[in-house]
Amino acid sequence: MENSSLPAALEQKELHGIAAAFESPDKLLKAAKAVRKSGFTKVEAYTPFPIHGIDDILGIPHSHLGRIVICCGAIGATAALSLIAWTGSGDPLLLPYWTGLGAYPLVVGGKPLFAFEPSIPITFELTVLLSAFGAVFGMFALNGLPQLYHPIFNFRHANRITDDQFVLVIEKADPKFDATECTRLLQELDPVSVEMVEE
């Protein structure tokens, strides 16, 4: 195990937090539980693959992505129906305000100027399209992507996070944060290494 002490040079730089690397997801889960039990709230885990149960332990709330998606879907459905009603009928069912404002009434196949039946495919497609946009771009936004820099890359073994190491970080933003105290706590949890990570 590599021990870390507080080099004088590091103290000059902003500290991001204390990182500990573990060799298995099991050890990471145990360590995360212990750290949370000690009362830390700003704890982050970096792993090569999703680990079941880590969200609960770290107290990460359920994602709001679903709400973003349903709002986008509803906008898509409304937009499609309004557009069809406006262009098709000239006396739109849904937007009376636009009556006579450059609509294109055109009788096709003897069908009514506006009917729900042929409007559903377009409504469906636009709902799905905007929902998909909401899902992808909403996910980017909630994850803070694109992000070109993250302090965790200052961790010496950062490249192994995408390979075979499981890293837990207690961030400096935590109200209970104390560098020596956190280092000691993490070292007790059977890590491969514990290190200070600068901002």
Partner: peptide, 8 residues
Amino acid sequence: MIEYATLD
């Protein structure tokens, strides 16, 4: 093989 901590 992952050891699942939640497995009862």
